[in-house]
Simulated scan of single mutants.
Amino acid sequence: MGATIEAAVLNTAPGALEIEQLQLDDPGPDEVLVRVVNAGLCHSDLHEIDGTFETEPPILLGHEASGVVEAIGSNVIGLRTGDHVVTCLSVFCGRCRYCTNGQLTLCENRNGLSHDRPRPRLLNAAGHPVRPTAGIGAFAQAMVVHQNALVAIPRDMPLATASILGCAVTTGLGAVFRSARVQPGTSVVVIGTGGIGMAAIQGAKIAGAAQVIAVDIVPEKLKAAERFGATHTVNGRDVDPVEAVRELTRGGADFSFEAVGSSVTAGQAFSMLGPGGLATVVGMVPDTVPIAIKGSELYLQEKRLQGSFMGSNQFKVDVPRYVDLYLQGRLLLDEMVSERVTLRDINSGFATLSSGSATRVVADIGES
Rank of each mutant, 00 (worst) to 15 (best):
V260Y: 09
E258S: 03
K221M: 10
A214I: 08
V242Q: 00
D238E: 15
A225S: 14
F228T: 07
A253Y: 09
A224Y: 14
T193W: 00
D238H: 14
R237V: 09
V190R: 00
S262W: 09
H232S: 13
G208S: 04
T233Y: 04
T233E: 02
A225N: 10
A225Y: 03
F257N: 02
M198E: 03
E220H: 13
Q202A: 08
V218Y: 06
A224R: 15
A210K: 14
G236M: 05
V189R: 01
D238N: 12
G194E: 08
F228E: 06
S262Y: 13
P241F: 13
S256E: 00
K205C: 08
H232L: 11
I191M: 06
N235K: 09
T186I: 07
S187R: 10
T249K: 09
A209S: 09
R227W: 11
E226V: 15
P241T: 02
G261C: 08
T231D: 10
A259K: 06
A204F: 06
T231R: 00
L248M: 14
P219E: 11
E247L: 08
I206P: 01
I196F: 02
P184E: 06
T186P: 13
L222W: 08
M198Y: 01
K221E: 05
D240Y: 09
D254Q: 12
G192W: 00
M198I: 15
T193P: 00
T249G: 07
V212C: 03
E258M: 06
G236E: 07
E243I: 15
V190C: 05
T186E: 07
V245E: 04
Q211T: 13
A244G: 11
K205P: 12
G195T: 13
A204H: 02
I191Q: 03
V245S: 10
I217L: 14
A207H: 02
D240P: 12
R237W: 12
R246M: 09
I191C: 01
R250N: 14
A209C: 15
G208C: 05
I217W: 00
A244L: 11
E243T: 13
G197E: 05
I191Y: 00
T193G: 01
G236T: 08
G203H: 03
I201V: 13
